[in-house]
């Protein structure tokens, strides 16, 4: 890999870390504004209008939208005919995260040892890098930075359902997870659901589901219908904005699915707070 390209990847990651944290994704912002308009009850309406003001302040003044600027998940999709050197790629992504979190006044929220010392690494590294290869990209590399705050990440759940439990089993488990989470993940939430694969694949799918704009339904009509039903049933829980009741518990439900084993029905739920932060860029690779 050329030095110039690696430099570009580092700078892009750095910029995306900042960009993602100043504000929220546009489709979620639009849904939030709509929710505020429709909300009838006083307390949740007050919350929703404050959240909208919060986003405007964040965007204008470049103050992170939330103090939990997250652990950085970085999705890298490599296109056709791009040669990469994995170790150098990883190193430059890590450097980019380090730089972005420092320059952007983002919080360093990563501890080195999860169980014992829990000492902060001081630079928000390591990031979590997910590398994949996409036939949809030309001679390009797509980078997505998805900072994950743990108020919401902590509320995720995985289940290895019995295939006989089927559609109803999926709904029961998802609704249970959301009821239990209550006000903790900063509703109105966005729910990513992964069905199929193996245990860890299902959670990866759930996370990937959150990367899809909430207005776009799963292309498979049966899954699309399930998304719609779940959205309605989650809102019927009436947990509401920040748990203050009302009609806006959830802004969107996205499901991703994948083939699985004859004996299994892996299911994962990954919740995003209202402040779904994501920024992406496609880099063209010159020959």
């Amino acid at each position: 890999m050329k030095k110039g390209l690696l430099e570009k990847i580092k700078n892009t990651v750095s910029t995306l870390c900042k960009e993602a944290n100043y504000g929220i994704r546009e489709d979620i912002f639009e849904a939030l504004c709509q929710a505020e308009k429709e909300e009838k009850e006083e307390l949740p309406k007050f919350i929703l209008s404050t959240l909208i003001e919060n986003i405007n302040i964040s965007r204008e003044e470049k103050i992170p939208v939330c103090q939990d600027t997250g652990m950085a998940e970085v999705f890298v999709e490599v296109g056709k005919g791009v040669k990469i050197e994995g170790i150098l790629l990883k190193k430059n992504i890590l450097e980019g995260v380090k730089e972005g979190y420092e320059e952007g006044n983002l919080r360093k929220s990563v501890v080195k040892d999860p169980l014992f010392s829990r000492k902060n690494t001081g630079d928000n590294t390591p990031p979590l890098i997910h590398l994949s290869f996409s036939p949809l990209l030309e001679k390009e590399i797509k980078i997505i930075v998805f900072p994950r705050g743990f108020g919401a990440e902590n509320m995720g759940k995985v289940a290895m359902l019995n295939p006989q439990e089927g559609r109803e089993g999926v709904k029961r488990f998802v609704l249970g997870a959301i009821r239990e989470a209550g006000a903790n993940p900063c509703p109105p939430i966005i729910v990513g659901i992964g069905i199929g694969g193996t245990m860890q694949t299902s959670m990866f799918l759930a996370k990937k589901a959150l990367l899809r704009p909430i207005k776009i339904r799963n292309p498979h009509p049966k899954y699309a219908l399930l998304e719609k039903e779940l959205l309605k049933e989650i809102n019927d829980l009436r947990i509401g904005a920040q748990g203050m009741g009302g009609m806006n518990t959830c802004l969107g439900v996205n499901i991703e699915h994948f083939p699985t084993h004859i004996a299994g029905l892996p299911l994962a739920v990954n919740i995003s707070c209202y402040a779904l932060r994501e920024a992406q860029k496609v880099i063209r690779v010159s020959s």
């Binding site: 404050t50 959240l51 003001e53 919060n54 964040s58 939330c66 103090q67 900063c186």
Partner: peptide, 10 residues
């Protein structure tokens, strides 16, 4: 309870 996710505002 203060407003979760309103860090910039607060």
């Amino acid at each position: 309870i203060t407003i979760g996710g309103a860090g910039a505002y607060l």
